[in-house]
Amino acid sequence: MYPPTPDQRDLWLITGRDCTSAPGPGITSVQADFLAAVHAGHGSTCHQFLGAVARRRDAWRR
């Protein structure tokens, strides 16, 4: 696993700022970890958090 560059982090913050839309299906496990951390306190209605957790769960099962 690698840490995201500042440019990647900024892009992820911009594209993942809307809690009403889920992250795209092609997010990496690193991006899923980042989005889950950023949206962790938003509750069960945050689609970014739920999508990131689902991606992390799928990666863990493989």
Score class of each variant (00 low, 15 high):
Tyr2Pro: 09
His42Ala: 08
Asp10Val: 06
Gln48Met: 15
Arg55Phe: 03
Gly51Met: 00
His47Glu: 13
Pro6Ile: 01
Pro6Gln: 05
Ala22Cys: 03
Leu13Arg: 14
Cys19His: 15
Leu11Pro: 00
Asp18Ile: 09
Arg55Ile: 00
Ala52Asn: 06
Phe49Cys: 03
Asp18Glu: 07
Ser44Asn: 05
Val53Asp: 10
Thr5Tyr: 06
Cys46Ala: 04
Pro4Ala: 12
His42Leu: 09
Ala37Lys: 10
Ser21Gly: 01
Gly51Leu: 00
Asp58Leu: 11
Leu35Val: 07
Gly16Tyr: 07
His47Asn: 10
Gln8Cys: 10
Pro25Ala: 03
Ala59Trp: 14
His47Gln: 14
Arg57Asn: 12
Pro25Thr: 01
Ser21Leu: 14
Val30Ser: 12
Pro3Cys: 03
Val30Gln: 09
Leu11Val: 09
Ala59Asn: 12
Gln8Asp: 14
Gly41Val: 02
Thr20Tyr: 07
Val38Phe: 05
His42Ile: 00
Arg57Ile: 05
Ala40Lys: 12
Ala54Asn: 09
Asp10Gly: 08
Thr5Phe: 07
Ala52His: 10
Ala54His: 12
Pro3Phe: 14
Tyr2Met: 14
Ala40Pro: 00
His42Arg: 13
Gln31Met: 05
Arg62Met: 11
Leu13Lys: 08
Ile14Asn: 09
Thr15Trp: 15
Arg56Cys: 00
Ala59Leu: 07
Trp12His: 07
Arg62Pro: 00
Phe34Thr: 03
Leu50Asp: 02
Thr20Ile: 04
Gly51Ile: 05
Ala54Arg: 13
His47Arg: 15
Ala59Met: 06
Ile14Cys: 02
Arg56Met: 15
Arg57Gln: 14
Thr15Asn: 09
Pro6Asp: 05
Leu35Glu: 01
Cys19Phe: 12
Pro3Tyr: 14
Ser21Ala: 11
Ser21Asp: 04
Trp12Phe: 15
Pro25Tyr: 03
Ala36Ser: 13
Gly16Met: 02
Leu11Phe: 12
Val38Arg: 14
Thr28Trp: 04
Asp10Ser: 14
Leu35Ile: 10
Ala36Trp: 13
Gly43Ala: 04
Ala59Asp: 13
Asp33Gln: 13
Asp10Cys: 03
Ile27Ala: 01
Arg55Ala: 13
Asp18Gly: 08
Pro23Phe: 07
Pro4Glu: 06
Arg17Lys: 15
Ala32His: 11
Gly43His: 05
Val53Asn: 07
His47Asp: 02
Gly43Gln: 06
Arg57Trp: 15
Asp18Phe: 14
Ser29Phe: 02
Leu13Trp: 08
Gly24His: 11
Ala59Thr: 09
Asp7Lys: 14
Pro23Asn: 01
His42Asn: 09
Arg62Glu: 10
Thr15Arg: 15
Ala22Asn: 01
Gly51Gln: 01
Asp18Lys: 14
Pro23Val: 04
Gln31Gly: 02
Thr20Phe: 06
Arg62Lys: 13
Leu13Thr: 08
Phe34Gln: 00
Arg55Leu: 05
His39Thr: 09
Ala22Phe: 01
Arg17Asn: 10
Ala32Asn: 03
Ala36Asn: 11
Ala32Tyr: 11
Ala36Val: 11
Asp58Asn: 06
Gly41Met: 01
Leu35His: 07
Asp18Leu: 08
Asp58Val: 00
Cys46Gly: 00
Trp60Arg: 12
